[in-house]
Nucleic acid binder design. Structure first.
Lengths: 154, 154
DNA sequence: TGACTATCTACCGTTAACGTAAGATACTAA
DNA sequence: TTAGTATCTTACGTTAACGGTAGATAGTCA
């Protein structure tokens, strides 16, 4: 085989994903590798770069549909300004989504951090948990102050 | 019906979720509402607070299994230090997950922002897209500099 | 040239988090 | 009381993103 291209198994190993995943992205028309006359798939560095980009997005919670949208870039770039604007908007929306996620995660993080501190303060009371909470336990005493702790089971 | 409790439809409306979702969380033993003698579910503010907490977590990419884990707080708090430590670790792991997500999202955001700028610079060349890219188009010229743009379709 | 391993296509299976529908029962307002 | 709406249980359906298998073919190495 030419040294310039990788077969699917090699790509899978290099990117630490399964061959099934790679074929799946092809089924979804996110990628189209070369083929040998016999039908074996061959991947260039460009193909691999695109795979990396797809993984980068999916690992951050974006669906393949969104990936597909973002991928329209070049097509629209080659068809004039209007298309570019559309793509710009699509990417802009993705950025907005990310910003929302960032804010939510930051809030959640501080809530969890507060909850963790409370849990660590708790020395483990032996009282039967009541609906009012154990009066000696800071976790239960502060039940209403830390919303995340409303998750506590009864 | 007592004014203190809400029925499932009212809760669903208030939290902007479906009744099916609420019942599903109950199937998953994440929540156990009161019942009227006839079997109709009744929710207190505590129940609703827990529902909010569950949603807060799931909306940020956590699975119900993780939610269940975090929810062990009180149980372990009532059984001594060891349990508390376990819960503290579970929450600690969740925080670590969040930090990783935050870093990834930040990186992705700046990549997308860079990509967006490139797209906006592109005035829309009429050239047929070649494997080398359109020479007049900054998007294609900088193809290798902005990895996310390797997503471009051909 | 054989033997062995990798890939191919085609297709059914899986999991999480619900959606949806049916038929029965409960609640509520007039 | 009764008509109308909400809820109940049960159970099968759905979607995304793959997993796994079978039987056939391709690539590779001594």
């Amino acid at each position: 085989m030419s040294i310039d291209y990788l077969k699917i198994g090699e790509v899978a190993e290099r990117l630490r994903i399964t061959v099934r995943t790679i074929r799946y992205y092809e089924e979804e028309e996110l990628l189209e590798p070369y083929r040998t006359p016999g039908g074996t798939r061959l991947y260039s560095e460009q193909h691999i770069a695109r795979l990396k980009a797809i993984l980068h997005l999916t690992e951050n919670g974006f669906s393949l549909d969104v990936v597909r949208l973002i991928g329209k870039t070049r097509e629209s770039c080659a068809t004039g300004n209007e298309g570019s604007k559309e793509v710009s908007n699509i990417i802009g929306n993705s950025i907005a989504d990310i910003e929302e996620k960032l804010n939510n995660l930051k809030a959640l993080k501080s809530e969890l951090a507060a909850a963790k501190k409370q849990v660590e303060k708790c020395k483990g009371c032996k009282n039967t948990p009541s609906s009012k909470g154990c009066p000696k336990c800071p976790v239960n005493k502060n039940l209403n102050k830390i919303e995340i702790l409303n998750l506590v089971w009864e």
